[in-house]
Design a protein around this nucleic acid. Structure first.
Lengths: 112, 112
DNA sequence: ACCAGTACGCACAATCATGTGGGTACTGAC
DNA sequence: GTCAGTACCCACATGATTGTGCGTACTGGT
């Protein structure tokens, strides 16, 4: 069981962010959107239910932190934790590779 | 549509390897297992159907190459393409981070 | 009172990913 | 002929992930 492929860290990271919306949410957070509604608008066609769920999972996984202000019109701030920032940082080259991969594919299959 | 979070490369990569078995298959391939049966034994409790499917998807995505030998007892070789090697390489630090993350969690929740 | 906005939750449905249990075509050992 | 092994595919079932629609508690504007 020592270092079976199943145990490789990539699986861990995929378990953390390998969902349809999490990478997007993480990027948004990194770019400055912090309120629930901002995220909702920024991310896409994500529904409130799913956004709330993903946020909660991210929180449980210590990738983002939630701060609720007792203030007036309900206000909650989400932010990347140091861990989340680390991961986001780490994923940067991966994102670039993915981008390049896509560009490469576009050349091969110019069906548009 | 320019650089929406949805378009970020991480999503591309997750689309490529964000499944239960692909990271493991990729690792196996990188470590020297190349035959179908080797992969089957090396990866885990993966079923032949799923392994064949994943391999086919990996092939379609140009991450692995398939070579069938007309020879005797059916023989097929799978190998990482340069693209696949690149990705594998790129994922190495991610795997390390995932590993560290896991270790960290183990400290926080010593429930075993 | 009524409309709008914020940050969610809950029930239910559809979709996608995986798993199970078969089967195929071929060859070698016994 | 029968068992074993290689490299798969197919039909079906389950389970996890996502989506849809509706509801809540609270406040501001008119």
């Amino acid at each position: 069981m020592s270092r079976d492929a199943q145990e490789c860290g990539v699986n861990v990271v995929i378990g953390l962010i390998g969902s349809k919306w999490k990478p997007s949410i993480l990027w948004r957070l990194a770019e400055g959107d912090h309120r629930f509604a901002e995220l909702r608008r920024g991310v896409s066609g994500i529904s409130e239910k799913v956004l709330a769920e993903q946020l909660r999972e991210l929180e449980r996984d210590a990738l983002v932190s939630r701060t609720a202000y007792e203030g007036f019109p309900l206000r909650v701030d989400y932010a990347l934790t140091p861990l989340g920032e680390e991961l986001n940082d780490l994923l940067d080259p991966v994102a670039q590779w993915g981008d390049a991969y896509l560009a490469d594919k576009a050349l091969e299959a110019p069906g548009g």
